[in-house]
């Protein structure tokens, strides 16, 4: 699935890095606990979260993730957007709740299967 597909499926608003929309995403993770996100490496993953602080961006950066979707219309501040832009990390926001957003991506073929240990 491409990042552009995620944006379309979740009816999400793109917040930065429009040039990265053609990148492929192979797995996904939905969580507000960053240490849980850090526990398993995922291949070119998207992170769905309702948490909004700079550590969300840093966590995704450490994991080499390619996209973050903020659910329930949460919005990162400018500092977070700049941090993401420095790393070519796509940010978007959707009105959907976490459960619905994860479910929508899952039924459209994006499973969490690519999870692997380091």
């Amino acid at each position: 699935m491409k990042i552009s597909d995620i944006q379309r499926l979740l009816n999400a608003e793109l917040l930065c890095c429009p040039d990265e929309l053609d990148k492929h995403v192979y797995s996904a993770c939905g969580s507000d606990m960053m240490s849980d996100v850090l526990a398993y490496v995922k291949d070119q993953a998207v992170l769905l979260t309702g948490l909004v602080n700079p550590q969300v961006i840093r966590t995704a950066e450490m994991m080499d993730m390619v996209c973050i979707v903020f659910v329930r219309s949460k919005r990162p501040n400018l500092e977070m957007i700049h941090l993401a832009e420095d790393n070519g990390l796509v940010l978007m926001t959707t009105e959907m709740r976490m459960y619905d957003a994860c479910g929508t991506l899952y039924v459209n073929g994006l499973c969490g299967k690519a999870v692997k240990h380091a």
Partner: peptide
């Protein structure tokens, strides 16, 4: 803030 899950 997303930490303190006992995973550090």
């Amino acid at each position: 803030l997303g930490f303190g899950a006992g995973m550090g």
